[in-house]
């Protein structure tokens, strides 16, 4: 066993025997061992998960550490704000994770917090909507397009938070790809990327956004003519290879669906959207 592994395991063992002495070492008053232990374990878990999924290790560690401390009973406002800052751009991923949907864990573009959530949630599913954009745009094109054909409403394509490492997700993607292979996959995919990107552009400039921008740039996705728009809404619920249900809250009022026309069995008219 590697030394650090033994050390982490020992922290768990030692701190499980409640002792405030460890808190006293830092000069804490009235802090239980659970908070310190939670920070240690959460920090290690967040860092490791981010490293595995290619996120920002230090941010993942900080988010994990404070999350662990909170799980141990900590409620310090400044620390939680700092964790929020580290998790900027991942709030929807977090919501997705906490509600049973999958938080983001894209391989290259998701912020580390998305990776943490995606991996730790251990659940399957999609989370769509501009508030939930965490995945790299390069992945969106590939994943949203088949989902779009099942959804049946182009306007409901926002973005996708996907976990490529999830076998369930992989199964779902495979199934949906096969089901939609004859449809306008790339067209819808490109639209999804644009829509996802447009929502990204509307968000605050932060590290997560920078990562996503870089991913978009690296994938050479043409964003010309895309207007920043914010999308409110969610996309939730999926089974491994089953149907996808989704909704957007009054999307027509938010500008997302303007210009889209569903042409029945003939697909979608994107001309107005891209005009």
């Amino acid at each position: 066993m590697a030394p650090v592994v033994a050390a982490v395991a020992a922290v768990g063992s030692a701190l499980s025997a409640t002792s405030i002495a460890i808190g006293s070492a830092i000069g804490l008053t009235g802090i239980t061992a659970g908070i310190v232990g939670g920070a240690v374990v959460g920090g290690v878990l967040g860092a490791a998960t981010s490293a595995i999924f290619g996120g920002e290790i230090e941010k993942g560690a900080l988010f994990g550490a404070i999350g662990g401390a909170v799980a141990g009973g900590f409620s310090g406002a400044n620390s939680i704000n700092a964790a929020n800052s580290a998790a900027s751009g991942a709030s929807a991923g977090a919501s997705g994770a906490s509600s049973g949907a999958l938080g983001g864990a894209s391989l290259t573009a998701a912020p580390s917090q998305g990776a943490v959530f995606g991996q730790l949630s251990g659940s399957t599913g999609y989370s769509l909507g501009a508030d939930g954009i965490l995945a790299g745009a390069s992945q969106i094109a590939d994943k949203v397009a088949p989902a779009a054909s099942l959804v049946g409403h182009a306007g409901e394509i926002g973005s996708v938070i996907g976990n490529s490492a999830s076998s369930d997700m992989a199964a779902f993607l495979t199934a949906t790809k096969e089901a939609s292979i004859a449809q306008t996959k790339w067209m819808a995919g490109t639209e999804a990327v644009k829509m996802g990107a447009s929502a990204l552009l509307d968000d605050k400039e932060d590290d997560a956004l920078k990562l996503q921008r870089e991913a978009i740039a690296a994938s050479k996705i043409d964003l010309e003519g895309v207007r920043p728009q914010r999308v409110q809404g969610r996309f939730s619920g999926t089974t491994q290879a089953g149907s996808v249900s989704s909704y957007l809250n009054k999307p027509e009022k938010q500008g997302l669906l303007g210009g889209y026309q569903y042409l029945g069995g003939r697909g979608y008219d994107y001309a107005k959207r891209t005009a």
Partner: peptide, 21 residues
Amino acid sequence: AAQQAATKLKIDPTKGMAEIA
């Protein structure tokens, strides 16, 4: 190791993270 330690500590860091988020 962290997951094992979390089990021993009876702490689920992911809950804390979700709570924050």
